[in-house]
Structures are given as C-alpha cells and as structure tokens.
Design a protein around this nucleic acid. Structure first.
Lengths: 210, 210, 210, 210
DNA sequence: TATGAATGAGCCTTCATTCAT
DNA sequence: GATGAATGAAGGCTCATTCAT
C-alpha cells in the first residue's frame, strides 16, 4: 500500500517548534495558568500525549518558548554593542531601533510580555532571562557607556544606573500599553516613543544646562 | 502579662485589614495562584470561613489589597503635581523622591510587585490600577510637562511620551531588582538610581548639545 | 426609663411560629437544601442564633412545619369519615371537597408540596407523615369503603386498593401542576377535576356495565 | 480464569452507561444531594475524573439517567395508544399493564422514584420529563379518551381531567409504597392494584348507576 | 511515533452550627 | 433572651500527567 498521510507529511523534526508556537499563542491569549495542555495540543494539531513526548511538563513549554526566542536577540544585541568604539550614542540608537523594530511584530512582542507576566511565578524563567539576556546585554551596555564617559562623548554619568535610563522608557511604554491597555491615540507608536526617548536620553528635558 | 486568648472574637472592625495584610504577605511570598486561602487565613490567625465572610472570593483579596494601597498614593501624587506652576523639574524631583521613599519600605514595594505579577491574569486588576493611578497621575504629569514646555523651562519634548521617560528608569530598576534578582552591589540603591536618573532626565547623557 | 421597643413589641410566644412561617415560605421557594438558615432568620426578622434557640437544627424546621400543618388536617378528615354510616359516596365527596378547598390556598398547598420534595431525603419526614396522616386517614377510608361494600352501596371492590383510586387522581393532578408545571388552560381547575374525578370514581368511564 | 485487570482501559463506548448505572444506584440509595461524585465513581469502578470526562457536572448525571430511561418508555406508550381505533379500554388496559410490568423491576422503578424526589430541586428535570413523557403521552391518552366518548364506548367524561383518573391511582400506589413505605401485606401488589384500578376506572365503585 | 482514556491530588467555596457577649 | 462573628468539615470540579495500545 502506499502511504496515507493524514496531514501533508509527518515532519517530526518540526514538531517541537510547532508545539512551542501553539503554546506561545495560547499563553499570550489566556495566560500560562489558564491555558490547558489540551488546548496547546489542539492548537498545534497534535495530541496531548505528544506534547509530553517533547516536553516533560507544562512549565517546560514556557521555558522552551523563552529559550528559543531569547538567544538570538541577546547575541545580536551584544554583537552590535561590542564593536562600537566611537560615539556610544550611535550604538544605543541602533540597539533601541532594532529592539523597537523587533517588538513591532506582535508575535515577537508576545515573548517579553509572557516573561513579564509569568516570571514571578517561575524562578527558573527569571534565571533563564538573566542568563540569556541580562547577563549578556547589561555588561555590554555598561561597558559602552563607561567607554563613552571615558572618551568624552558622554557626561560623567553612572553607567550601572544609566542602563536603566536607556531601557526604562521602552519598558514603561510596553507595560502601559500591554499590561494596562493604555495606548496613545495613534496605537503603539513605537517610533514616536523612540524618537522622543532618544532625544531626552541624549539631551535631557531641560532647556538650560546645569 | 497580657493574655493571648486562643480566639479573638468580636473584632469585626479590624478584621478585613488583618486579612488583607496576611494575604499580601502570602501572595508576595508564593504568588497568588500558589497561595491557598487556608494559608491566608492561618497567617491572619483566623479561620478560612472568616476570610469568606469579608471577601467573596480569593480574587477579591487581591483587589482589596490593591484598592487599599493605591488610592492614597495616587491622590498624594496628583496633589503634589497639580500645585506646581513654576519649574516642573522641581515637581518631578519631589514626585520621584516621594515614590522612592515609599518603595524603600518592602511592605509598600510589595503591592506594585504583586500588581505586576498578577495583572495579566486579572483584567480587573489592570482596570483598577488604570482607574486609581494611571488615569490620575498620567494626565497630571503630562500637563505639568506641557506647561514646562510652554513656559520655557523645558525643551520642546512630546509630553505624552516623556511620561515614559520620567517613570521608565524607576520601573526598569524595580523590574531588574525584584523580578530578575539583579541588584547593584550596594543593594536596592534607590537614591543612587534616582540621582542619576534625574541628572540624565534633565540634562541627558550627551556631553555636547545638539 | 420607658421601654424602647425596636419593633412593636417582643412577642416571644409567637416567635417559633413566625420562624416556621418564614421557613415554609423559603423552603417552598427555593427547596430545603438550597435555603440557608440565614435566609430563614432574615425572612422571619430575627437573628440566625435565635432560630437555633427554638429549633435544634435546620431539619427540625422542616419537621416543625409538617407537624404543625398535619395534625389538624388529619384529625378533621378522620372525624368526617368516622361518623358516616350511610352512603360512603357522600363522605368521600365531602372529604375530597374539603381537601380541594384546603389545597386551593397556596399557603396550604405548600406543605404537601414540601413533603413530596423532601420526603425521600428525610425518612423522619416520611415517618411523621405516616404517623400523623396516612395511618389515621387510610384505615378510616378503608373502613368506610368496606362498610359501603357490606351494606350494598358499593360494588364488591378491594377497599385497600380502592383508597388509591380515591386520592390518586387528585395526587396526579397536583403533581402535574406543581411539579411539572402542566396545568389546564383554566388554571388549577380543582373544581373541574373534582367533579370529573367523582363522576368516574362512582360510575366509571364505561358506557356499558360489565 | 479470566483476569481482572486493576484498570480497565480503552472501553470508551460503554463507559457513560456504566457510570449512569452506578449513579442511578447511588442516587436511589442515598438521594442525589447525599451522594458524592466520588461514590458514583467508585461504584462504577472508575475514577472521579472519568465521571467528569463524560458528564460536565453531577447534575448532568441526573439528567443523563432520566434522558436515557424516558425516551423508550414514552415512545412505546405513545405507539400502543396511537394505533387503537376500537374500544379505548383495551388500550388503557394494555398501557397500564405494560407500565406495571415495567415498574415491577426495581431497577426500572428507580427512575420515576428519582424523578419524583429530585424534580422540585431541578427544574431542568421537570422540563425533560414534560418534554419526553408528558407532552407525548398525555395528548395521546386524551385523544384516545375523546375518541372513546365520540364513538360511544365511553360515558361523556372530560378527557383532560380523566387522564388524572387513569394514572392517578398508580401514582398514589407508588408514592405510598416507595415514599412512605406503606405497602400492602402482600408486597408491591401491582397486579392486585391494577385489577382493582381498572375495575373502578371502567365501572366505578357505585352499585347503582346515576 | 502517536493517541486519548484514565487518574487523583488539590483547592475554592459553602453553610450548618456554636458561643462569647 | 438575642446577636452575629467565627468555625471547619465537606464536596464539586479541574487539569497536569501517565500509559496501554
């Protein structure tokens, strides 16, 4: 007999990824706790048992999603920061622009949103995020800032704290929009935010200098 | 010695607050979902049934905590913003200083932490926070910034977006510290953060002006 | 000092009856299990604790209701049956007419309805009803029928079984109407039922005699 | 010997029926409210979770039992009534005989008993019974009686009310026996009841005709 | 590989009953 | 007598996980 493919073909290699896609979609839509493994399986078009064949637990789905999404981002970010020797503002502009472009895609935005909402319940998630992102990007950014201060491009700021000033406004923007449903009239308005943020970050809000 | 009767009875007036205190402590320690109502009751020194005498559901505890904590904060913040006619930077400094002082108390810090971790699972919580805080503070802050631009104290920034620049760095600091356990070597370091944040917010990081 | 009556006056003697009245109303409206003692107390205008002062348990309310309602009915019925020496059909007509008149009052109808719905859950209720009603009325009715057969007024029927024929149609009528909400177009129509029932009971439905 | 595996798996087709059987047994034995879903599961030899796999709630078990039992009975009854063109008494005799034969089986008797005791607490049950039985059988019986009056077999009775006279005595018999434990000395005595009931229904109790 | 029937621990919630005042 | 705050046992229901097939 010739084969009777129920779906097009069995692509066993792609399965875990398809499951993670489905899980991400469901987790973002309903939250981790409110999503049943059954639903993830159905959304992925497989059986519940198969999910457990690839992932040892529901929580492992969460970790799988995050793991898969973070590594490339962080590495890319670090690369773009590490190579900069001149004006750090250029690097920061590039970094945040890339980040905003990335987050403009709802599918990509979903991951940090998911992390934000579940991290307090899953310490392992926090650890992963630290390991994969924070512990890579933060030192790179701090170094960049410190170098900028050293070579006279930047004012004598505290690099460790200044990192918060670089990413904070973006975080606040996403939190307001995604968690509290408080968006500007013109939608997510990431470009407008970025433009204003960089302007303030670089030159401050004061008319007069100190 | 003052006696410690096994059962405190007839203290109806204080009970709801005691229950909320216990609930907040447990929720922060273990997360909302992982906390059993039994545990809240035991922590408050009452029976499970009593909790339901004052609060119709476990979720109502969450809302009660937030409600109780938010109103005074928001009102205080709005007051301090509304009365400023001169240099908005002074008002911002006062606002953030007050906020930092407030958050330095772990018991007070617990509430925003709780909100952040549960908001995605409880839309009502988001609505409450919007209603009680964001919808009050945000317009006041925007108005303050717009007035600052108008009267020449501030550069021509976008007030709506600049709000993110005002609170973002603080939010980022708290998120890194409380969610991802990434603290400066000197602890929460709220003063250091605030000092650096205000310096950058007002004058930017650039040595040269545009 | 002169008294300060919160309500008109404390009528302690009437209280148990008022509680039973309230209980009956609530039990009929919502069913025994679905009625909370709190509700009974509130409906009676007293506190929950007072209910327990008069009745040792919720079930005792049920029994109190039934006890109070049954005794007079049964005694009255037995009286009217016992004194008949002549044509038993007259006694039956009187008995059923009285019963129908009684049941036409919704407040009176409530008790048998309540018994019917709760008897299977409370054997004590069944026992009470047997003791107070069935064991009194049934023998009296059987005797009446047997005497009717003996003195030639009635055909040679089985008195024990004929009791079912006397009350059955009325029971069926009430069950259809009260339990299954299946009423004639003209409402409860107890008179119409009774007229037809007696006609059939006495003369049968057949045109021809056997 | 045939093995008795601890867990029967993969028998999905038969399971719902087995669960309903167990539920019926428990409900009749202890009443609906006093029966725990755990007990039903244990009686069916399955886990509690499985019960909820097939039935969305405890109440659905009740409805399932009734649904399953009623349809065949009602349809059978209607069939036997609809085809009769001649003497309606023959049809009535057949109908009641069939009913009595059916109810002589304790397992079959259990369903109406259950309906009677729970109907007041579950309006849906009343609706089901109306829909599946009363609304089918009652019109058929009324039509039969009306036709009997029209073609001279029956006296000029009120068909709508006479329906109560047909089934009432049987209902009364069952209520006395099953609810109040008041049985004739010779047991359920359904044949004796039926014989006497039909005799009275057809010819009345009076010696003399009107 | 793949399925989905089956499990059972776990928890929120209800409410009859008690009792200090 | 009268109150109503307080108790705590009990049970319906969910759902992550397992495993026979």
């Amino acid at each position: 007999m010739n084969e009777k493919p129920k779906k097009f073909r069995r692509r066993a290699e792609a399965r875990p990824d398809e499951v993670l896609d489905a899980a991400l979609a469901m987790f973002v839509e309903k939250g981790f706790a409110a999503t049943k493994v059954d639903e993830v399986a159905r959304a992925a078009g497989v059986s519940k048992g198969l999910v457990y064949l690839y992932f040892p637990s529901k929580e492992a789905l969460l970790e799988g999603i995050v793991q898969r999404a973070l590594a490339p981002i962080a590495n890319h970010a670090v690369d773009s920061l590490a190579h900069f020797a001149g004006d750090p503002r250029e690097a920061i502009t590039q970094l945040l622009t890339m980040l905003c472009r990335h987050l403009a895609d709802p599918a990509k935005l979903a991951v940090p949103k998911l992390i934000l909402s579940e991290v307090s319940r899953f310490p392992e998630l926090a650890a992963m995020y630290r390991r994969e992102v924070l512990d890579k990007v933060r030192p790179a950014l701090e170094t960049l800032l410190a170098r900028g201060v050293a070579n006279g491009h930047l004012r004598p700021i505290d690099p460790e704290m200044a990192v918060r000033s670089v990413i904070g406004p973006l975080l606040a923007h996403l939190a307001m929009s995604e968690l509290f449903d408080l968006r500007p009239a013109d939608g997510l308005a990431l470009e407008r935010l970025l433009k204003n943020h960089l302007d303030i970050l670089f030159y401050g809000i004061s008319e007069a200098r100190p």
